[in-house]
Design a protein around this nucleic acid. Structure first.
Lengths: 101, 101
DNA sequence: CAGGATCCGCGTGGATACTG
DNA sequence: CAGTATCCACGCGGATCCTG
């Protein structure tokens, strides 16, 4: 469910609940195409991680939120963030080889 | 770095440090091919998450361990595990739609 | 605005055979 | 045992065009 090039990135952005609109996500995630954004959102929705709310107006407005279960991922994403930050510290200490990739 | 079909699965298995050998991983991860196992391990190694130790003997023996930074991922993986467990609870309460996928 | 539809290249990953 | 080497299919993801 978390696989895919953009899933985690999208989830990270949806986290605080402040970013919800399709167009916002598009701006916040450089390099993603409309197709991919829509597709990954559909999959997240199908997996019960994200809910979609359509406002029937012109022009249309759609909001995406984390479901109850999606929000339960919060601690996990937080831990990943912390892990990423630790990398800097370890690099500073020269604790591991700089990857060539 | 965590992308790829097998990365997280491999990391989960390496976690307690009890499973280390190539052949063990092969048995523990049904469906993975030799190519993929080797490739993903190489990438994890290149990214500094896993260390490889070759014992120069016949037949050869290779052990994989998490590096210091790889071990720092532990809380994150734990949180993901907890998250997965919560799914059962939510399903039992009928709290979200069963995904069709 | 929020996408659907279509076309396409390229890389991922599977299967098989082989090796130090 | 712990991998390489090779071939190949498929589907991911990008680009572009179109629409309610």
């Amino acid at each position: 469910m978390l696989e895919g090039r953009w899933k985690l990135i999208i989830l990270f952005h949806l986290f605080d609940g402040k970013v919800q609109r399709y167009s916002d996500l598009e701006k916040l995630i450089p390099g993603i195409s409309q197709k991919m954004l829509a597709q990954q959102l559909r999959q997240l929705e199908a997996d019960g991680l994200v809910s979609r709310k359509l406002y029937p107006q012109v022009p249309p407005k759609v909001e995406y939120r984390l479901t109850e279960w999606g929000q339960a991922l919060c601690p996990a994403l937080d831990a990943i963030l912390k892990w990423a930050e630790q990398r800097e510290a370890l690099l500073a200490k020269g604790r591991f080889l700089t990857p060539t990739r």
